[in-house]
Design a binder for these strands. Structure first.
Lengths: 279, 279
DNA sequence: TTCCGCCCGTGATGTCGGTCACGCCACTAA
DNA sequence: TTAGTGGCGTGACCGACATCACGGGCGGAA
């Protein structure tokens, strides 16, 4: 061990609940933006036109005319931790453009078992498939971190897409990516021989999208999920996740320090995939 | 038992391999269509403009100008059973519009385990997510029934979408539906407590899209998959599928006659979902 | 015809992991 | 301080299912 503390002791374990303030522009000059403060400690971005993230994000980065129109039909709104944007089975009211915060997308069976399909990041459009096809929301969207999610009613959104072909293409792109992540999720659930393999796949996936520095073989990333939630992602029980975490730590595949996850060697974890048993 | 024969005896068990001839127009007047015969017993639809399915299908049913343009960039081609349209991991060459036949979409792990994600039906556009996003095909497309699949190269397809906003919307719609089916697949794999539950979910899903008459509680449908393939869909072993089939037949939940599947009561099967144990 | 390959049926065996049942720690609210 | 809550750690148990190993029936090819 390298002096790294256990997850369970001495450190505040969860940053999930802590408010994450939207980082401001790098140059620090924020006073020109139409900004106000919401009950949940969030900074509200009033207008998409001035959104500091406009350039980086798939759906926001559109020609000025389109963004203007988009802005007109969008209602900004904020949601506290624990809120629910929409529920599986509801008929689609419209989409939410996630500006800040994080959302958990899940589905639940009749007996209460939950499958977490995806954690949604800022810049994504939530409820897109259902809104496009008109069929009910297939997932439930719960707020994990206080969130600004701007709502666009279904009809207005569809009209907007009809008028702006580029936007429709963007929508198709995001749907494609969403599908991609769904397939990769199916792979981890469906192709693994053991829970350990599933967890390894999950950790690698997680790090490839949350790593602080992706170039090296060693990876560090924030783990903002509880064991329970991880279990619900990979389709296992909370207890096995806990046990596997201990095992991985024992086998030097993993270190946990507070909410920071360290994978000393990505390659070592990858070796674990599809290795039925070292005999 | 109602005199229904066992799957294993006396009947030709698989129609999968049998050629399915594309049904002609109801009125029988086919001689006006630009039709020719391919090596595999298939009827080729040379031009989308005259495609007999144009009205029913999501992507084909577009304004004349769009269909014309589409027709210009499309290369019709046929593929025998066992052929592979594209392989997981290849960079996307373009899309295939599936005119007739059936395609198996699957993903495989390093050790050879296979997960069948979906069976694709005529009218769908294959390779769409990868072609739109530019990332590699996430699945492998294998021909199960001799197939006509018209190819459109990626660049031409993207340009086409840029010029025809309606088409982009259709693409988004199909992506939404594809995503929907992926989620439902994840539900059957991820939320079930037992293999029996998974199989029941699969059968219900299958019947809801292949039933001959959906109004009644009793359902009949063609089962064109082998036990092995069903196993690969629901993430179980071939043997358990076989055993579960026997069990379901014993419990009167299911009858199999040749390749025809009969579910006497859909409700009875549904009772099986999320019922941990009848105690 | 014979042979081979593909599918389905079935028993025996071992084991992974779900479930139950605890206990411990950290944090919060009263 | 105490009680309550939410998350993690661990042991014991045992059942569902993967795996291995065969056998048998059918169809297609030689």
């Amino acid at each position: 061990m390298t002096g790294i503390e256990e997850w369970s002791s001495s450190m505040p374990r969860r940053t999930v609940g802590g408010f994450r303030i939207v980082p401001r522009g790098k140059n620090g000059s924020t006073h020109e933006r139409p900004v106000m403060h919401a009950p949940y400690g969030l900074e509200i971005i009033e207008s998409c036109l001035r959104c500091p993230h406009r350039q980086e994000r798939l759906f926001c980065n559109l020609p000025p005319a389109a963004v203007q129109r988009l802005s007109a039909i969008t209602s900004p709104s904020t949601h506290p931790k624990g809120a629910t944007l929409f529920v599986e089975g509801q008929s689609p009211r419209g989409v939410y453009i996630l500006c800040s915060g994080r959302i958990k997308l899940s589905t639940t069976s009749a007996d209460g078992k939950t499958l977490i399909v995806r954690m949604s990041e800022p810049g994504e459009v939530l409820g897109l498939p259902a809104t496009i096809t008109g069929s009910p929301y297939e997932l439930t969207a719960d707020v994990v971190e206080p969130t600004q999610a701007n709502f666009i009613p279904r009809n207005e959104f569809l009209n907007f897409l009809r008028d702006h072909g580029e936007a429709a293409l963007r929508v198709a792109q995001q749907l494609g990516e969403t599908y991609h992540s769904a397939v990769s999720e199916m792979r981890t659930i469906g192709l693994s021989h053991s829970a350990g393999e599933k967890l390894a796949r999950f950790l690698l996936d997680w790090c490839s999208s949350n790593a602080t520095d992706k170039s090296k073989d060693e990876v560090r990333a924030h783990m903002t999920l509880t064991h329970e939630e991880i279990a619900q992602v990979i389709g296992a029980s909370r207890e096995t996740v806990t046990r596997l975490f201990s095992e991985f730590k024992r086998r030097q595949l993993l270190q946990v320090s507070g909410s920071v996850l360290v994978i000393p060697s990505r390659a070592a974890l990858e070796n674990l995939l599809n290795a039925p048993e070292p005999r």
